[in-house]
Amino acid sequence: MPCTEFSPSIFTRPVYADLVSRGAAPAIMLADGDGAEALIDLVARDASVMEQAHVMFIPLATNHGARLKALGAPSYHESPSFAACLERFQKALADARMGTSLYLAGTEGLIGQAMALAVAAGLAPGAIQAEHRGSIARRMQCVHCKGVTEAVTTDPFVCSHCGLTLFVRDHFSRRLGAFQGVCVDAETPGIVPPTQEIQP
């Protein structure tokens, strides 16, 4: 499964491309689920990219771990969730110097959160690459209560914090690493459009 192609949308909707090797330089690689295959493909194009790589993987429901580990990064670690991986990821960012590249691969929830943390740690946007693979579920912030609902696959959806029915916008906050959800029936309470699967 190649990098997901999303239909053209507003300017703030992130777009993704195939990862491009920046050579045998210090690298932090973070992937979840099918994102592992993006890293495997990257190494197939340039094996040297692994020479100084620190790889972190969250398998979700996949079994790519063994193949990813076999790529031979000097440091490889698996975590059951992004939350479990957070401390390790932040330590890697804190230890990084200029010249370190960040490769992200997998779901938008992972990419968005990791990118927000990396930018906050000082990494330049030009040093970060992201390739989308796997689920197109979105990490949504409710613009009303500010609560974040993970893995949203339908539009509209119910905010897991305040219970409002939210319209899934393409507007993305880089700072929060989340899409914005807006009350869908504010003017016509109770009149809610039919629920649809989110499309790429």
């Binding site: 200029m98 010249g99 330049a124």
Partner: peptide, 8 residues
């Protein structure tokens, strides 16, 4: 050479 991104 040190792999700094262009934007800095």
């Amino acid at each position: 050479r040190l792999n700094w991104p262009k934007d800095v």
